[in-house]
Design a protein around this nucleic acid. Structure first.
Lengths: 145, 145
DNA sequence: AATTTAGCTTTCAAATTGCAAGTAAAAACA
DNA sequence: TGTTTTTACTTGCAATTTGAAAGCTAAATT
C-alpha cells in the first residue's frame, strides 16, 4: 500500500505523507531525543499507543524515511534509524519549532525554554545542521561497535 | 475549545495545531494560490469537503492563523485572510515543498515541475520572502479599494 | 419576483485513532 | 536449566474524526 496523493502539488504531497499527528513526532523523537527502539518510543512524553506506533513505523519504513535493523548479536531488539530522506526532514522540524517558539507560547505556556531554544533562535540553519551532524555521527559510530 | 497540547515540546505543539491533512493545505491555498472565499477553497485541486472546510476555517481563526472579514459593501461573501501568525508559516511550507521536490518524486511522479520550482531550488529564503511580500502587497492593496 | 450564488449545516457512513488486554520469542536471572 | 522479565508487537472494541451528499438560508443578480 504505497500511498495516495491528492494532486500534483509539492506542498500537498508532503502533507499526504507527513500530515498527521504522529509521523513527524516520531522523526523528532529519533533526531532530537535519540530514540531507536519500540520501547523507547512508548516511553516518550507524547505517549503514543502501541498499535499506532506499529502502524506508523511501518509506514515510515515503506516511504523510506526510516529503516528497521538490529544490533549485531541481538535478535530481539529492533532498531529504527533515519535514512537520508528522513534526515532531510530536519529543516521542516526546525521551522515548526521556531514557529511554536514565536507564536504558540500564548496558547501553550508550558512550551520549554532554555539553551537549546536560544541557540535555535540565534542561528536556525546552524541548529538544524548540528542536529543532523550529531545524528550522522551516531550512525557512523554504530557501524564500528 | 482552544486546543489540547500533548506536552511541552515545541515541535509537538506545532503539530498539535498543524498536524493533519488540511490545516497547512488551506494556508498554502491562501498564500500560494490567492484563495480567499469559501467558494475558492471548494474549487481547489485538493477537493476539500464543505463540512471539513467549515470546521478547519473555524479552527484556523480560533488559533489566530487567519481572520474572517468581508469586503466593504458586500454582505454575503466572507473573506479569509492570513494574519502575521499565518504568514509566519511560509518557511514551513517552503521546506515541505523542497522536501517533496527532492525526495517524493519517486512516489508521486506527477509533482509539478517548472519555473517556480527552479526558483525555489535556487534560493529557498528568497522564494519564501517573495511569497510573503506578495501576500502582504495584496493585503495592503485591499485596504484602499 | 424569480433565479442563482455563497456559505454554510446536517445526516449518516466509513476510516482512523486510541485504550486495554493478550501473545510470542528472546534474553536475563536463579 | 527452568523461570521470570523484557521487547515487540497484535487483537478487539469503543470513540473520535473524516468525508460524501443533500439540504437550507440569506444575499445578490437577472
Amino acid at each position: 500500500m504505497p500511498q495516495d496523493f491528492r494532486c500534483d502539488c509539492p506542498f500537498t504531497s508532503a502533507l499526504d505523507i507527513l500530515g498527521d499527528k504522529w509521523m513527524l513526532v516520531i522523526v523528532k523523537q529519533m533526531l532530537v531525543e535519540g530514540k531507536e527502539t519500540f520501547k523507547d518510543f512508548t516511553e516518550s512524553d507524547e505517549a503514543i499507543a502501541t498499535n499506532i506506533l506499529s502502524t506508523k513505523l511501518k509506514l515510515l519504513e515503506e516511504v523510506g524515511i526510516i529503516i528497521k535493523t538490529k544490533r549485531p548479536g541481538n535478535k530481539k531488539t529492533n532498531l529504527y534509524l533515519l535514512t537520508d530522506m528522513g534526515l532531510a526532514l530536519t529543516p521542516i522540524l526546525v521551522e515548526l519549532a521556531t514557529w511554536s517558539d514565536s507564536h504558540l507560547r500564548g496558547l501553550n505556556p508550558s512550551i520549554v525554554e532554555g539553551e537549546a531554544m536560544e541557540s535555535m533562535r540565534r542561528d536556525k540553519a546552524a541548529f538544524a545542521s548540528a542536529l543532523e551532524q550529531n545524528y550522522r555521527a551516531k550512525l557512523a559510530s554504530m557501524v564500528y561497535e
